[in-house]
Amino acid sequence: MSSAAAKKTRPKYLSLSALLFEIRLPSTAWVSGLHRVSGALLFFPFAAWLLYLLDTSLASEQGFAHVRDEYLKLPLAKLGLTVFIWAYAHHFCAGIRFLLLDLNKAIEIRKARMTSYIVFAASILLTIAFAWRVW
């Protein structure tokens, strides 16, 4: 071991800014990281928000009209729905990719990279297709 290597502090913890700006992560890592981010967002706040919308819209005719004609016409609500659609689409597509990886499908690096691009393409297309109806 050289003396220069011995002086390096180990272990090295990577900061968020290092992950975002210094290191170029492979697309497979982005699929994985965004799977976590989207999963956490779906649990909170989106699950609670959807329960609120389901509750209000099923409770009464006025509640349904309020949700459909007023609440979901607000730009902030539309933005929220769009983020929800992206999070659901990404979590769904990336989740299917992970299930296939668990079954040893497409685990070679070239195929794994290819499926990570497919996940991004599919989730963005799904987001556009459904968000189109929201706006």
């Binding site: 976590r36 999963g39 956490a40 779906l42 649990f43 699950a47």
Partner: peptide, 9 residues
């Protein structure tokens, strides 16, 4: 599902 995932995080 969320319990396992959030606990992992």
């Amino acid at each position: 599902h969320a319990w396992v995932g959030m606990r992992d995080i």
